[in-house]
Design a protein around this nucleic acid. Sequence first.
DNA 1: TCGGTGCATTGAATCGATTCATTCACGTTG
DNA 2: CAACGTGAATGAATCGATTCAATGCACCGA
Lengths: 358, 358
Amino acid sequence: MNDGSSGQPGKARLKDVAALAGVSQGTASNVFNKPDLVAENLREQVLQAAQKLGYTGPQPAARLLRSGKAGCIALLTDASAAYLVSDAYGQRLLAGAAQACDAAGLGLTIVGQGAAKTASGWSVDTAIADGFVIYCFEENDGIFDRLRRRGGAYVTVDGGRRGGLARIGIDEEAAAASAMAHLTDLGHRRVGILTLELTQTSPPGPIDAAQVAAARYRTTGLRLRGYAHAAALAGVGAEDCPAFQTRNSAASARLGVDWMLSLPNPPTALACMSDVIALAAMARLKERGLSVPRDISVVGFDGIAAGALSEPALTTIIQPAEEKGRAAVNILVDGRPTDDEILPARLCVRASTAPPPR
Amino acid sequence: MNDGSSGQPGKARLKDVAALAGVSQGTASNVFNKPDLVAENLREQVLQAAQKLGYTGPQPAARLLRSGKAGCIALLTDASAAYLVSDAYGQRLLAGAAQACDAAGLGLTIVGQGAAKTASGWSVDTAIADGFVIYCFEENDGIFDRLRRRGGAYVTVDGGRRGGLARIGIDEEAAAASAMAHLTDLGHRRVGILTLELTQTSPPGPIDAAQVAAARYRTTGLRLRGYAHAAALAGVGAEDCPAFQTRNSAASARLGVDWMLSLPNPPTALACMSDVIALAAMARLKERGLSVPRDISVVGFDGIAAGALSEPALTTIIQPAEEKGRAAVNILVDGRPTDDEILPARLCVRASTAPPPR
DNA sequence: TCGGTGCATTGAATCGATTCATTCACGTTG
DNA sequence: CAACGTGAATGAATCGATTCAATGCACCGA
């Protein structure tokens, strides 16, 4: 029905273009994909035919089926996409990934795990992408098997290595240890720990050693070990490091602060597993009439921009979040498996830490 | 080669599953897509066969070709993806869109226009998505035609309506006018304007009336008109509203402030077209030894979170950025064209504005 | 008992391009 | 002059599912 110049737009197929140009479909395809394989005059002819028919180029879906190139990288998280976009650390990660995608001419698809729950849900199995960046999945999440079976290339950020092209991260344990060591060096002997989630579903609240041992989020477990190790080295026992699990939200951080302060012998310092937690904790501390760092010290983790601007400025572990995103995408673009990339993180001492009150 | 339980993973196709289960391919397809159309026992049989073969579900690419459902929404911007992710307003927009996508079980693909420049670049023509959210394109960008030809559903955010399902925005002109009116109500007679880009490529610097008239970014032009209109209403002429074009970056905002202060008769207030600009301007003003709002008032635009936390807290126009993102995605998901959605924006008076020094 | 009704299942056509083994034409070289 | 090599163009097979008209079957009421 669409032969010749029937004029209805949006309906022309490569076949029609080829016919109008008087060449084979294969040649027409080459014009759009490998132009240098086609003689100039023919190429021109095909392009003109395309123009006349209003053909804008190969349809992505069909091209994808045959060639397998989707033209985008997917970032999978077990949180929701909205969380990733709203969280300061997630934003940095995303910014780095976006930058690398821009450079490579690729799109960046964000997929929240929450999506998978919908009936027609989008997930690892249905996502269309040339490669996957997996961010923050529980250690033994089935996603890795599914990804492998599906045949997708993937890279893990801040997670364990389970197959895949590479694992990008920092030395979590050492980084956490340096935060704790900074505190004990200042003389603190009781350090409250405001930790991130141990598993995907655990609720906010105080946690004990058994729960710590059963942590399923890799980074959380490692950092906890780092804290404990450095504390022990300074002669500070686990009983002097009460821990409270937050959800990386201001609300749960406030809960944590209140709990710490309600202890018979409250800590003189707080080690927080994210800057978001640390900032919220400082705000709560101020509300409760405490002065940071005079009455109580606070150290964060991540190095988000807001931490440098807060009052007092936050002492924290600065980690190269943008670089992680960039590295992950670049490895995927390259396609070759590499060694794990352990990026540098460092303690940045600002104004929120000081010796304990005597 | 893959008949029976040959065991090699990742290679099973629906056809194989159907064969092993002893049903037609059509039925097997239904098991995965419309399970209630298939009798329980058959369904079970197919599922088991799939399991045995390590079949994880229909391959997205093939499904897409036939059904046309990609399972994701694309957010197109003429800036880079990295910019969108890093900009405070962009983040809010993204957060809203992500939330709606989460709820609908869809992925969210961010596509920066920069990508199109690469040879194998991803762009409107090659993007795979069920719908497109177009954010911030110059008025007569060719993208709309291409999108229409390609047959994609799209919605415009903060842009003009050029086809598409809907246009989401605020009354830019009225919003800007209310910011300016607030300033003139306080008694300001000279108001510097720190504007966003007028076109995609224009450099930072002072601008004149001719350039303003030639603005190609719709929101910029409209807001400029709003400012001018409100100023005129208060008897403040264009000659008393020097304008400087920034790039929505701290660096260019500082340039703008310096230029304003170098004027023979510097303004007593600054109307900034984004909170990012306003915050950077306030910082620069402080560096130059000026006190806000005592020496000079500053009003922003957008209502990002940092504006409420700054010192002094920023007077600004709060616009429902998250809501815009959500609405855009929801309309796309719905698929029905609707009227334009003009969302409410309102002036929020905080501490950065005061009467001019006498 | 028989025609009719409704629902589950089948099977082939189809989506729109890419790919690759072949064919073809046209100099070049021995 | 024939054989050969080279590079461009062809055309059919293929990617892997979805869709839908046609079919078969069982059950119901008359």
